[in-house]
């Protein structure tokens, strides 16, 4: 009886274990099937690179939204990468253990804050700030802009980049640092020439993971970015990233023909891009881990 129960449980669990892999496929297939009607009308290429967005007339050009996503993500990376990397080097190489233990839960918390909270905060603080500083750069801005979206997004991806690069850096053997230090190198020289070089691949993976997180982030960006369906010309312009487009139009999408298909296709495109980056980063990390172990 006990053995029967065990055998049964083993079978059930085995079936369940295929579930996560199955979900990945189901999501891709589901989005593809729903996106097919619009692909039947228009080639993917013209959808991706057309700037004309007028669902009522049947024009679905994703180009402004793709550019919006790229702009916001680029700003976020420019801000987040140096700060996150410097912070993770400090935490792994310089900070006393007490400081590390004090800061880790804070980064946990930063990762755990819901994106609407980031959004509300962005509206309260970042948007007015951007509106205030725009004139100094010879522009005017309502504040709801690429820059505001990028800044909020940068803070949101701090934890991802910091955690992954911390893990990578701490997998580098201490003896290697000792080898450099014993030659009379300073700590920073050791970091620059040895630690960063040894950990380069993993750090790239950390950045790519942060990038893919940024590409898909929706609510926080949506709330501060302005949602103007035009290709942005400067960081003070409003933009309209792809995830925001999907989220904003869920209400009306059932009433306009092909609209839902276009949005599901957009979600599919987003997913494919994010997945490619993610899988890439994971493969690098697995390789790094294997080499270290």
């Amino acid at each position: 009886m006990r053995l029967l129960k065990d055998a049964l449980a083993s079978k059930v669990m085995l079936v369940l274990t295929f579930f996560p892999g199955l979900v990945v496929f189901l999501i891709i297939i589901g989005l593809y099937l729903r996106g097919r009607p619009i692909l039947a009308e228009k080639p993917l290429f013209s959808l991706l690179f057309s700037s004309s967005w007028a669902p009522g007339r049947g024009d679905f050009g994703f180009f402004p939204f793709i550019m919006g996503t790229l702009w916001v993500t680029a700003v976020a990376l420019i801000v987040a990468v140096p700060i996150s990397l410097l912070a993770s080097i400090y935490l792994s190489e310089y900070a006393p253990r007490a400081v590390q233990e004090f800061i880790r839960p804070m980064i946990d918390l930063l990762a755990g804050l819901p994106s609407v909270i980031y959004g509300v905060w962005g509206v309260l603080l970042i948007v007015p700030l951007v509106a205030r500083i725009a004139p100094f750069f010879g522009g005017t801005s309502s504040g709801y802009s690429i820059l505001a979206g990028g800044l909020v997004l940068a803070i949101m991806i701090f934890p991802t980049i910091i955690y992954v690069s911390l893990e990578v850096i701490s997998s580098i053997p201490y003896e290697l640092r000792e080898a450099s230090l014993s030659l009379g190198a300073t700590k920073w020289e050791t970091v620059k020439h040895v630690v960063l070089k040894k950990g380069l691949q993993g750090i790239i993976a950390a950045i790519v993971l942060g990038l893919s997180r940024a590409l898909g982030e929706t609510m926080a960006v949506l709330m501060v970015v302005g949602n103007i369906p035009k290709v942005p010309q400067s960081v003070f312009d409003g933009g309209y990233p792809l995830p925001a487009l999907i989220a904003n139009n869920y209400g009306e999408m059932m009433s306009v023909p092909l609209y839902d298909s276009a949005l599901m296709l957009a979600a599919g495109v987003l997913l494919v891009i994010v997945l490619v980056f993610n899988v890439l980063a994971r493969i690098i990390l697995v390789r790094v881990e294997r080499r270290a172990g």
Partner: peptide, 12 residues
């Protein structure tokens, strides 16, 4: 000069 247990060549 330090020689460690396992040779630690720098990544270069």
């Amino acid at each position: 000069g330090l020689l460690s247990q396992k040779p630690q060549v720098l990544p270069m």
